[in-house]
């Protein structure tokens, strides 16, 4: 990314130089954060060639039988918002969401069922970015600001994003948010270990890539006291996620579109 920025400064002239310097200055204040995101698993040509057919494929299982979000629990959402400096604008038009709750029939529109289990009917489903196997957002992005890591996480480069929002049009899950205005003054308590964003860029859940790289589970998984969220390597037959999927019936959101969502719901 630093290399990219240098190139950017070189080529984009005086106006762009001013903005780039501003970014450097602001990122100095968060030097630790910048360090964390400095590479963020972007595939170089070398790593693409040497990738050993993706040994690790990260995925999440959401056990809706255990999830108590319909009772007003927002632990996963709160911990995520805090961890990632997600702003709260107090209105829906400009809102930025990484994890949020949707009614079952909204989250699973294509599994419409007139008569279903009472518990499911009133269920609120936590929804995230599905970190798809074939992410349409990555396909359409004109600058590769959104990209897929070797372990399958779909990442965002907030310094490269031009804010065209083509990814938002392409995402079938409504998982992406745009910074319609400057988010910084709407962050309740800034977490210095994670970057804040500027206006005009898109963001979304990244399976807590910054925590995973440090050997930690995603913040939402850690925060869920009902143990409804399970995270792991779905390519490993002995992983907890695989065991859960082997023993239980699971559904995914809009699997028919071929995007290969990596969040599995146990109903």
């Amino acid at each position: 990314m630093n290399k990219g920025r240098r190139k950017f400064i070189k080529l984009a002239g005086l106006a762009a130089f001013g903005i780039a310097t501003e970014q450097i200055v602001s990122s100095k204040a968060q030097s630790k954060a910048t360090e964390i995101i400095s590479n963020r698993g972007r595939q170089t040509k070398k790593s693409l060639n040497s990738a050993s057919a993706a040994k690790v494929r990260l995925a999440m299982v959401v056990d809706l039988r255990k999830c108590v979000s319909q009772n007003g629990c927002t632990k996963c959402i709160d911990s995520c918002n805090k961890e990632h400096n997600v702003p709260d604008f107090g209105e829906t038009k400009d809102e930025v969401k990484w994890i949020w709750k949707e009614p079952y029939e909204g989250a699973f529109m294509d599994q419409e069922n007139l008569y279903m289990k009472d518990q499911l009917k009133d269920k609120m489903v936590p929804v995230f970015c599905n970190n798809c196997d074939n992410p349409p957002c990555v396909e359409v992005c004109p600058t590769q600001a959104t990209y897929k890591r070797d372990d399958g996480i779909v990442m965002m480069d907030w310094h490269r994003c031009i804010g065209c929002r083509y990814c938002m049009a392409a995402c079938p899950y409504g998982s992406r948010s745009f910074n319609w205005r400057d988010p910084r003054q709407f962050i309740k308590e800034v977490n210095p270990n994670f970057p804040t964003r500027t206006k005009g860029v898109v963001e979304k859940c990244e399976f807590c890539a910054e925590r995973i790289d440090n050997g930690l589970p995603p913040a939402c998984v850690e925060a869920c006291s009902a143990k409804a969220l399970v995270f792991g390597n779905i390519n490993d037959p002995d992983s907890e996620v695989r065991k859960l999927l082997k023993d239980n019936f699971s559904v995914r959101r809009k699997p028919g579109l071929g995007t290969g969502p990596e969040i599995y719901y146990l109903v």
Binding site: G4, K7, F8, L11, A12, A15, A16, I19, E139, V140, C141, P142, T143, Q144, A145, R160, C161, I162, G163, C164, R165, Y166, F178, N179, T198, K199, G200, V201, V202
Partner: peptide, 21 residues
């Protein structure tokens, strides 16, 4: 329509053949 118009050159700096845009 761009959120970050000053970065529009990124389209040419990182030409992405799989993007219709």
């Amino acid at each position: 329509d761009l959120g970050q118009p000053s970065r529009v050159v990124n389209i040419f700096l990182y030409p992405t053949l799989h993007s219709i845009m």
